[in-house]
Amino acid sequence: MANEWPLWEVFIRGQHGMSHRHVGSLHAPDEKMAMNNARDVYTRRNEGVSIWVVQAKDITASDPSEKGPMYEPSESKVYRHPTFYDIPDEAGPM
């Protein structure tokens, strides 16, 4: 449908969350209504303290068919994972 509202992706930072997480998408005619719709659709159970909305068309996504070349180089480098270290409790969540 040509006059359908554009698609928006919604990101919400929860009560104790450290960063915004993608929670879903919705349709809205402009950014203000996208924000209101995000509030109405995705924070009905007191989920969030901060909302971001961005038009889906403005997101550049990686191509799933390029998965091999994209991620292959990192697959064999186990030493990049911080699993060899004991994290002190005082450091808190990383």
Binding site: W5, L26, H27, A28, N36, N37, D40, V41, R44
Partner: peptide, 11 residues
């Protein structure tokens, strides 16, 4: 008229 509005009306 749209899912988003439907939920907003119910809210």
């Amino acid at each position: 008229p749209a899912l988003e509005e439907d939920i907003a009306l119910a809210n």
